[in-house]
Design a protein around this nucleic acid. Structure first.
Lengths: 349, 349
DNA sequence: AAACAAAATTTACGCGCGCTAATTTTTAAT
DNA sequence: ATTAAAAATTAGCGCGCGTAAATTTTGTTT
């Protein structure tokens, strides 16, 4: 028995045959598969009864060849190995499926070239729309702009000015201010640790937010930048952060890291140096992060950080895309939505 | 200007137009795109000259509708949020692209139902072959078997007896023995910490390997099992492992965890309890893991573990699939390939 | 140079479905 | 019972390409 066959039933080869068997005309069957609500309920019942007996499904390729627009949604993230993106991609995928679309998940594996290739590949699939978390300034701006011209596009996580029908992300100004305020209130004002050449534009926003927040609280901002390129943030935080710690280069005993992955690396370096990290009086150092990385709960000590609202960002990004798909008027009003970060207080700061 | 156009050239709409412009018949153009080597070099030169001037690419949907077999390769992993799978998926994807195929990456998000749905979705895409990392005994065996009947299938990471043309994974017997031997030689024989109801069949193999290895070394195996379901391994290792540590339930001071994620959670619990972890004489406990999770280098202290050979597994799985695609004779000789794990000595054990 | 097989190309048809227009049937409202 | 609106049917073209069979070209042998 071939899988998918119902016992004793011959295999349905195409929509014509299924139409005959279900006693409905082919165009009506076609309408049904395009939108089950668009046919009369009595007709729908007949079709679904036939479906139960024969489990036919239309040929995807024939469908997509002739449809004005496919049901494909491209989802492009810079790096699936980063838990932030794998988690948000998961939610985006499920939201698309719920809406009856087929998400196509592409990771750029940390390379702007692959990001460009991914957009090229997507063109061939004629997606109804695309959700893109771009590298930002690392991205091939020309390719992204061109893609924006040709397809409905929603950008998330990292903003690119003027690109896409909408941007959805976290309000770094709010989230960093929240953390700075907490750190100042509960102890010494923090210095800021980040990468010198951050791949992600959010890093720049966070630095700026840190500076403004510190000044607002009447403190002098102090920024320390680590050398290093690429996506190996933990390693950079470990090596460069460790170097700074060993050299006692930090002028304060409270360090706010630009993201959790840097903090995770630095915590490991601090441990190796025998430094006690935490908010207790007997501790040497406080370290905080940003993003609520899934492992940040299990660092030593657990990392105080900012949780981004994955669920809200994913749902809103999908919502904005579908809104664009429904209202044909492209590129009129570009919306920017940011969600607040939430302070996660743990032992590290 | 529409992106993709060459300046001053009109947009090519289909293969017919491209054939006219390049001065070659359409079927020959079709042959070229199917396999450039299959046309005479003089013909190939003409086509490629035309391609330079007009950058036409065939309609994917029309191609796949008529081809006996598509160039799609399905890649199904149980959980992209797990770095092991995101990393191996990355390598598999790139290997497929190199071979001129289009990988379609699907994560089952930790749910056997979604795994089944993913296989169903893949059917519609008529993939040339599929690379599946199954849940194992959690998988919908019937669905997987049925899929195996209908498509060339290579199983990796977790074996399912008799399923697929090939299995590729890590030799747990070897890798666990390697670790047990190291631990025994460098100190006390380890006890074994794992989940009571592991989702992954490798866990069972590792337990068995631990028992056999211990007996071979003349020690009594001691196994501790944590309650808890799902994929939140760190949490389970943290809570249940921490409970056992606090209760001083472990009869030895060396603990081998079934995987790194459990170890990561337990390390965090040990830290909270003020236990000193490591191989130095003054330490209270040694903890080791398995998989060389990307974060294991940055635990406190860094985790001694077993590195699986991602590259080899990914490449071999892809290789086995392509071998199956070339030789039409399915289901004759099923191969099983396992690669050795590599001991990564760090400070935790 | 003729003969001939092999390779390349052309001819011709079909894939499975979307979509449209005109017609017929069914439903819901008067 | 009448009628307008909604839904379904009939009929048929077109999408862009794969592919088998027929034809032409090419390269090799005698």
């Amino acid at each position: 028995m071939i899988s998918g066959d119902k016992v004793g039933q011959p295999k349905i080869r195409n929509m014509e045959e299924f139409a005959t068997i279900s006693g409905i005309s082919r165009p009506t069957i076609s309408k049904y598969f395009n939108n089950p609500e668009s046919v009369r309920s009595s007709t729908r019942a007949k079709i679904e009864a036939a479906l139960k007996r024969h489990d036919y499904q239309p040929n995807v390729f024939a469908m997509n060849q002739n449809r004005r627009t496919t049901k494909n949604i491209g989802v492009v993230v810079p790096n699936l190995a980063d838990p932030f993106f794998s988690e948000i991609a998961r939610r985006v995928e499920l939201a698309c499926i719920d809406a009856g679309y087929s998400p196509i998940l592409l990771s750029s594996h940390g390379s702007a070239e692959i990001e460009r290739d991914n957009l090229t590949s997507l063109r061939a699939l004629k997606p109804a729309g695309v959700l893109l978390a771009p590298f930002g300034r690392m991205s091939d701006a020309e390719a992204v702009h061109a893609f924006d011209e040709d397809f409905p596009l929603v950008v998330f996580d990292a903003n690119m000015s003027g690109v896409g029908q909408a941007f959805v992300g976290t309000d770094n100004a709010q989230s960093v201010d929240l953390m700075v305020e907490y750190l100042c209130r509960s102890g010494e004002a923090p210095c800021f640790f980040e990468m010198k050449s951050p791949t992600n534009p959010n890093a720049n926003k966070r630095r700026q937010a840190y500076i403004e927040s510190m000044e607002r609280h009447g403190h002098v901002p102090r920024i320390y930048q680590a050398e290093g390129e690429g996506w190996n943030f933990e390693e950079i935080g470990n090596v460069e952060g460790g170097r700074l710690l060993a050299a006692k280069a930090f002028e304060t005993k409270t360090i706010l890291c630009s993201n959790d992955r840097l903090a995770i690396g630095m915590l490991s370096a601090a441990y190796a140096l025998g430094l006690r990290i935490g908010h207790n009086p007997e501790c040497d150092l406080r370290i905080a992060g940003h993003d609520d990385h899934p492992f940040s709960k299990f660092t030593c000590p657990p990392l105080t950080t900012i949780a981004q609202d994955y669920e809200a960002i994913a749902n809103r990004a999908v919502y904005e895309l579908f809104r664009t798909l429904e209202t044909e008027n492209r590129s009129k009003d570009r919306t920017e939505t940011t969600f607040d970060g939430r302070l996660i207080m743990r032992e590290s700061a």
